[in-house]
Nucleic acid binder design. Structure first.
Length: 201
DNA sequence: TCTAGGATCGGCT
DNA sequence: GCCGATCCTAGAT
C-alpha cells in the first residue's frame, strides 16, 4: 500500500533524506491525470555553510524562501533563463537545506526509462513555478509516496555534485550526489563539468 | 536602473 | 568539444 511521505520524512538531516528519497515515487496530479516518477538521482544542498547552495552565507530572498520552510516544502526555480528545477526542502523550518531531483525513472509504453537532467525531471511530470512553495506533505497537486522499494547500499553511487564549480573546490568536491547505480550516469554532465572548471582557470 | 551570471540542454562541428 | 538559447535574480550603482 503506497504511503505518502509526511513531515517527519523530510525534517531530518539532509544527506539522510537525499539518500532515502532514492526509490521513492513523485506523484503529480495534473488535469485529472496522475503522473508517477521514481526518483533515481538527487543532490543535497546544505544551507548557509554550503557555498553551492542558493542559501549560501545565509542569503534569504523571495526566491529561496521555500528552502527555509518546513521539510517537504517544494522549491521550483529557473536556471539559465529556460530550465525549471525541482527541489524539496529538508531539515527543520528556518534551516535552508534541500534536495535537488536530478533523475527519475518513468513508465512508458515501451517500458521503464530514465529521465536524466534536472530540467527534464520537471518537464516530464509537468512541474512548474506554480508548485513553488507548495507543501508536498499535504498538497493535492504533488507528493511523494513510499511504495516499498528499498535500494540497498551497494546499489547507491555517490559522487560530487554537478555544475557547482563556482562554489570552489572544497564544496564542489563534496560527495553529495546520490544515484541508483542501475540508472545510467549522465556522462555528458560530467564531461561538461570538467570543461567548465578548466575554462575558468 | 543596470549588469553579470547561473544547481542546463541539445545540436552542431 | 563547443556554443547558443533565453530570462530571472541578486547585487551594484
Amino acid at each position: 500500500m503506497p504511503r505518502r511521505l509526511g513531515r517527519s520524512a523530510f525534517n531530518r538531516p539532509t544527506l539522510s533524506v537525499a539518500r532515502e528519497l532514492l526509490g521513492k515515487v513523485i506523484v503529480r496530479s495534473h488535469r485529472g491525470r496522475r503522473i508517477a516518477a521514481m526518483i533515481a538521482e538527487v543532490e543535497a544542498y546544505k544551507g548557509p555553510a554550503d557555498k553551492a547552495s542558493h542559501a549560501a552565507g545565509g542569503r534569504r530572498t523571495a526566491r529561496v524562501e521555500p528552502l527555509y520552510g518546513d521539510g517537504g516544502t517544494v522549491y521550483v526555480y529557473l536556471v539559465y533563463g529556460l530550465h525549471w528545477l525541482l527541489n524539496f526542502s529538508t531539515a527543520a523550518r528556518g534551516r535552508p537545506e534541500g534536495v535537488l531531483v536530478r533523475g527519475i525513472l518513468v513508465d512508458t509504453a515501451s517500458g521503464r526509462k530514465l529521465v536524466a537532467g534536472p530540467s527534464n525531471v520537471t518537464w516530464h511530470p509537468k512541474i512548474s513555478k506554480k508548485l513553488d512553495g507548495a507543501d508536498a506533505t499535504v498538497s493535492r497537486d504533488m507528493w511523494i509516496e513510499d511504495r516499498g522499494m528499498r535500494i540497498p547500499a551497494r546499489s547507491v553511487t555517490r559522487g560530487p555534485r554537478i555544475g557547482v564549480e563556482y562554489a570552489g573546490r572544497y564544496w564542489a568536491a563534496k560527495p553529495w550526489r546520490f544515484r541508483i547505480a542501475a540508472a545510467p550516469a549522465n556522462e555528458k554532465d560530467k564531461r561538461k563539468k570538467g570543461n567548465r572548471a578548466r575554462s575558468r582557470e
